[in-house]
Amino acid sequence: MQHGSPDSVSSLPQREIPATTVNTDGKPVAGGASIAVPQSSGMGQLWSIACANPLSLVAFALFFLLIAVAIVGPSLVPYDPLASNASIALQPPSAEHWFGTDNLGRDVFSRVVVATRLDLSISVMAVVLSLVAGSVLGAIAGYAGGWLDALVSRVMDTIMAFPLFVLAMGIVAALGNTIENIIYATAIINIPFYARLIRSEVRIRRNSTFAQAAFISGMSHWRVLLFTLLPNALPPMMVQMSLNLGWAILNAAGLSFIGLGVRPPTPEWGIMVAEGANFIVSGEWWLAVFPGVTLMLAVFTFNLMGDGLRDLVDPRQRQ
């Protein structure tokens, strides 16, 4: 009886000596958190969902392809993306130049491939920044309540009161026209989404039994927040991040399309579409279409992946 299941062993000391234990942290919390987190992981379930929704499987495959291209692409491309050669300018797609050449004779395929790394890193960095900033703000607001909550909420409302792309334009115009500022601008306009999500997730569970148990067992507010409340908000955050990545790429490409951030000789999808736009009215479609389609595919991948993750995380929303 004494050597019962591991469960009863681990729960017994907690009940008997709650306050006198030296290391009061960890155990009760881990137990509480693991109960509250929905059991969403497991390769088996992942597989069954992938089979039920083949589109998600395609999305995950495309996602890994994009990552691979971003990492090894620049060292595999057949031509130098910056090398111009006026004698072969504006050639349509051929076996030699798969996506044709642009007005300076640069290989469009190489440029599209090389651009992947820049576009992905801009959006990933922006999303990570807004995730971190939004989580901190939202968690503090949701946990502390009171005037802090009111202040954070008002600031988020103010950001959302702007049409977001327009605000990003204003921020880049104010801070200066560089790639870093594109990242900051994209991050700032996405913060409210994370802050609101985390705030509501934390508020729901702030007074729950497992959070109170953690606090009573001697954890500081910070630890309660970090180890019991935040892990529960992770699943919806993953969905939000995936959807957000697509939106961040669109946003960054849109900004460089109107001449903000990335400077012309650098290969970047938005700029390439903008440069190609000048040639579309005379029929040289490949300049704009290939980077545009790639951009679309990347956004499409992140959106599909977000939908797939949502199915995984929140089965109620499955249609």
């Binding site: 669109l250 849109g254 579409v273 736009a277 959106n303």
Partner: peptide, 11 residues
């Protein structure tokens, strides 16, 4: 939702 507006316009 995946369409970049500027690209749709050009197409």
């Amino acid at each position: 939702v995946s369409l970049p507006t500027f690209f749709t316009g050009i197409v």
